[in-house]
Computed example of a mutant assay.
Amino acid sequence: MAERRERLISAAYVLYSELGFPDTTIEKLCTVARISNRAFYECFESRDELMLVVYDRCVRETLETVAKAVERAPDTLPDRIEAGISEYIRFITGDRRRARIMYLEVRRADDGFTASRQQTSAAFCQILETSLFELPEKGGVEPRLVVLGLLGVVQELLIEWTLAADPPPVDQLVGTAVHIFRRSLVG
């Protein structure tokens, strides 16, 4: 059963990113995974559950990669910002399928993914708040909300990269995001 489950996860990773979540049927998933429809339901209750597993795996791999990059960076705020943001964007853009799943297809799925997306944002905020810096509250500005807003900037850059017919170079995305973070957090 574990092997069939893994084949379905691999099929979903490809099909959800190529065809899109709405156009990926259970039949298509089963054909690519080389299993029966009945076997699908032995592994997952629905396409939505499978999407959540694929999304969560993408997020977990990204979080692990970013946390390691920040740990290896020199212990200065600008260096940790650059290491974390650079690794995040490079890891996401290293596989267009990952970018599509994390930033487009999960939004096309059931509304039940809202909680998972919020947990993901909270996890990335936690890395930024604990690994990158400790921001004191200044002038009524809540540091966690600043970080959340900055994550929104990165998300929009990645959505643009994913959807654009002629996407901007990854180095430009990294440079732009690092610039915005530094200006917002370092001054």
Rank of each mutant, 00 (worst) to 15 (best):
M1G: 15
R4D: 08
L8E: 01
A11K: 03
A12K: 13
A12G: 05
V14S: 15
L15F: 03
Y16I: 02
S17C: 10
E18H: 13
L19G: 11
P22H: 09
P22L: 06
T24V: 00
T25C: 09
T25L: 06
T25F: 06
K28L: 09
L29M: 05
L29T: 04
T31H: 06
A33N: 08
S36D: 02
N37G: 10
N37Y: 07
A39M: 06
E42G: 07
E42R: 12
C43G: 12
D48L: 03
L50F: 01
M51F: 00
C58D: 07
V59D: 11
R60L: 06
K68F: 03
K68A: 01
E71G: 06
A73S: 02
P74M: 11
P74R: 14
T76C: 15
I81E: 05
I81N: 14
A83R: 00
S86H: 00
E87Q: 06
Y88Q: 05
Y88N: 01
I92L: 04
G94L: 11
R96A: 01
R96F: 05
A99Y: 14
R100Q: 14
Y103K: 07
Y103L: 13
L104Y: 13
V106E: 13
R107D: 06
D110P: 07
D111A: 11
D111L: 08
G112T: 13
F113R: 11
A115R: 15
Q118Y: 09
F124K: 01
I127Q: 03
E129M: 09
G140C: 13
L148C: 11
L151F: 13
G152T: 12
Q155Y: 11
E156Y: 04
I159N: 01
E160L: 10
T162P: 14
T162D: 11
D166F: 02
P167S: 12
V170G: 13
Q172Y: 12
L173I: 02
V174Y: 12
T176G: 13
A177K: 13
R183G: 03
L185I: 09
G187Y: 04
G187V: 09
